[in-house]
Amino acid sequence: MPRFSGKTVIITGSSNGIGRSAALLFAQDGANVTITGRNADRLEETRQLLLKSGVSEKNINSVVADLTTSNGQDQLVNTTVNKYGKIDILVNNAGAAIPDSQGATGTDQGIDTYQKTLKINLQSVIEMTQKVKPHLLATKGEIVNVSSIVAGPQAQPEFMYYAISKAALDQYTRSCAIDLIQFGVRVNSVSPGVVATGFNNAMGMPDEATQKFYDFMASRKECIPALVAGKPEDIANVILFLADRKLSSFIIGQSIVVDGGTTLVMGAQAHNLNVLLGLSTV
């Protein structure tokens, strides 16, 4: 029997990348999945991918929604419960590194950029956790948050608000884990390194520059000792591991780093990526 047979999973940010890969793996392993994103076309691509892999239509709940709004969050929770009757696993994957609207960098980045970044990367996780909590208490379920190695302790001046949001998410994961384990609900997270997804494109980086970035990082052992950028399924497999009570039952409030060895060296900090990508000459 598939290990997630009869389980119901909400995966935020599942219209591409890590979330899409996690949705596919969960569904192929027997779960009912709620997939969601703001882009209807990309979300439909995820749904079609699941269907073509042999997943039944009845096991997919596809919801176009803005996770930063209360209505969007309620839509996710309510449609899932209405269709499947329960929620067993919440994967808080949605997130973004939002460029400053005026092109500012470092400490000159606007407060509006900070607010937008924190709203999607942290506040939406807190709100979704609160709204799904009663359902997870009933099923003694699992929460898996998707953080990042930029959470620290190294400085991240180019995208400091993104790094701040992920550092805060790590603390929320730890604190939430202790608060909820008394009720039998486990909370953990995964911290990806460089992973080849649509993340950079969402920041406004064109395909050519995105590929140049991945190629550069993968070619430098001081950036990625494994000499290869991660794939979405590399992270998705860890998400499923953390959501599997049989395999990871004694892991509480931890963040598993999946980065090809990057955090052991952090040599990428010595390179000016803006120069590499042609965004700056200094």
Rank of each mutant, 00 (worst) to 15 (best):
G95H: 10
S101V: 15
Q102F: 14
T107Y: 10
D108E: 11
D112V: 01
Y114Q: 06
Q115T: 08
K119L: 03
N121H: 11
K131N: 06
V132Y: 09
P134G: 13
L136T: 11
L136P: 06
L137N: 15
T139Q: 13
T139K: 13
K140T: 04
V146K: 11
S147K: 01
V150P: 04
G152R: 10
A155C: 06
A155D: 12
E158M: 08
M160T: 09
M160F: 07
Y162V: 02
Y162A: 04
S165H: 06
L169M: 03
T173D: 09
T173L: 04
R174W: 03
R174E: 08
S175H: 01
A177S: 14
N188T: 02
N188R: 09
S189I: 07
V190H: 13
P192R: 13
T197P: 13
G198Y: 13
G198E: 15
A202S: 14
G204Y: 06
G204L: 10
P206V: 05
P206T: 02
E208K: 09
E208H: 01
Q211L: 07
F213N: 13
F213G: 05
F216Q: 00
A218D: 08
R220H: 11
K221E: 09
E222W: 07
C223A: 13
P225N: 14
G230D: 08
I235V: 13
A236K: 11
N237I: 03
V238Y: 04
